[in-house]
């Protein structure tokens, strides 16, 4: 590949750190990690020019497993960390990652507003419909009758949060669903998401084999999206009305201009601002 740099092409392995993941054997997040490193290799990103930002949860451990810059923040606040970083440093590639609890429950408000603001970052949520790190409680995407948690022994009893609908309604500029059972397909989608200007959102179905073992079946149930991505939000909305939560593909690619303030100075010294107060 001619990437215009003197170094020989970087392979997926070059983006991995030496830190060993804490995940359970069989966790879907392993293949998401592999999809991320494949994506970076495909885009031949300079590891020093990439920042991977996360909150708290099993999947939020990802930054430590990568050889890029990373930030493992507090629970639910990965998106504002990523937004602040990208606005101040538009030259960087910023990937925000995390789970469904981190992104849709404690961080739900930031998800709405990150979609609205449309900063040129990519948000990848590994959705396993459960809080794994705290040992198996219902998350915002858990089915109402899921009764395996001591915290909600009768099931959470409330309807799940619908990330793609919320993303579309809130103005995300790229919306897709992927499955950890297909790391190459996930990587292709992530390449498109990173390339797409503005806020890109990918929900990755990533099974929790420990607390939601039936999710092992996902790999048999997921199926390609029935139609191509659209740039018409109304069409995308109609498709979501018949969504079985298991299609995989790009739903929507919008054309909204990303939010990026100009960072050029017209004053050299801050002290010049005193003049407005001089008497």
């Amino acid at each position: 590949m001619d990437n215009g740099i003197a170094n020989p092409a970087l392979s997926a392995r070059d983006y991995k750190s030496s830190v060993k993941p804490v995940w359970c054997p069989g966790c879907g997040d392993f293949s998401v990690l592999s999809a991320i490193t494949k994506t970076f290799a495909e885009l031949q990103l300079d590891p020093a020019q990439v920042a991977v930002i996360s909150g708290i949860g099993c999947s939020s451990r990802i930054p430590a497993y990568l050889n890029t810059y990373g930030f493992h923040g507090v629970h639910g606040r990965a998106l504002p960390l990523g937004v602040g970083l990208k606005v101040a440093r538009p030259d960087l590639t910023v990937l925000v990652t995390g789970g469904d609890g981190d992104g849709f429950s404690i961080g739900g408000n930031h998800f709405l507003h990150a979609c609205r603001r449309n900063v040129d970052i990519t948000y990848l949520v590994m959705d396993n419909q459960v809080y794994g790190m705290t040992k198996g409680q219902a998350s915002p995407t858990t089915a109402p009758d899921w009764a395996l948690s001591k915290l909600t022994p009768e099931g959470p009893g409330i309807n799940p949060f619908y990330p793609l609908v919320i993303a579309l309604a809130s103005g995300a500029n790229f919306i897709a669903r992927a499955s950890s059972s297909d790391p190459n397909g996930t990587a292709r989608m992530l390449v498109d998401a990173i390339r797409h200007p503005g806020f890109s959102f990918i929900q990755v179905l990533s099974p929790c084999v420990t607390f939601q073992p039936e999710q092992r079946e996902w790999k048999k149930l997921v199926h390609p999206a029935p139609v191509e991505a659209t740039s018409d939000p109304a069409k995308a909305a109609r498709r979501l009305m018949t969504d079985d939560n298991l299609f995989v593909g790009v739903l929507y690619q919008g054309t909204r201009k990303p939010f990026q303030p100009c960072l050029e100075a017209d004053l050299e010294h801050a002290a010049e601002l005193d003049e407005a107060f001089a008497i």
């Binding site: 504002p80 937004v83 602040g84 101040a88 930031h110 050029e264």
Partner: peptide
């Protein structure tokens, strides 16, 4: 803005403090 920086109005204080931390992680005093 005139000094080559920027101000972002955030969705809440949880976001504003984390935006500042993110920007500072990127090297910009925030």
């Amino acid at each position: 803005d005139r000094l080559g920086g920027t101000l972002v109005q955030a969705e809440d204080e949880l976001a504003s403090v984390n935006q500042a931390i993110g920007a500072s992680f990127g090297g910009t005093p925030s």
